[in-house]
């Protein structure tokens, strides 16, 4: 009997899935093997969902324009910023950052900027790419 349920089911089979199959369509049995395949170009990655404008991604810190006024340290809610007194610059721990962007708002020289980078997961929170101006 062609009820509305059957109709909905058929429609769902034909429509695009609500979830984005990122990074690959089906979860591979071996993640490391899949990662190697991706590196060698044998497996293609599904693109992630398009990010909105003014996305809050990883911070970009311009070391040269920083004057060491320490205002950003005053507003950072997760204390992801540390002051380096000998250089008079700051150090930023990305792993602690909550991406609120208050440092970018308060900085008188606009040294901080929220970029669109979001693939920043890692196993070592002190890795080179997760500490800015180490």
């Amino acid at each position: 009997m062609p009820t509305s349920t059957v109709f909905t089911l058929i429609k769902q089979l034909l429509t695009r899935k609500a979830t984005n199959p990122f990074p690959v369509k089906y979860t591979p049995k071996n993640m490391h093997a899949a990662a190697e395949l991706i590196e060698s170009g044998k497996l293609e990655i599904n693109p992630p969902v398009e990010i909105p404008p003014d996305y809050r991604g990883k911070l970009k810190y311009d070391v040269d324009c920083c004057i060491g006024c320490k205002l950003c340290l005053k507003v950072c809610p997760s204390e992801a910023l540390a002051f380096k007194p000998e250089e008079k610059k700051v150090k930023h721990y990305v792993a602690r950052c909550t991406f609120c962007g208050q440092c970018a708002n308060i900085c008188p020289k606009s040294c901080f900027e929220l970029t669109e980078e979001f693939l920043i997961a890692g196993t070592d929170k002190y890795a080179d790419e997760l500490v800015l101006n180490p």
């Binding site: 005053k74 809610p77 208050q102």
Partner: peptide, 10 residues
């Protein structure tokens, strides 16, 4: 133990 602006994200 935080200033008012730090408390907003908290």
């Amino acid at each position: 133990h935080r200033n008012p602006l730090k408390v907003i994200p908290l």
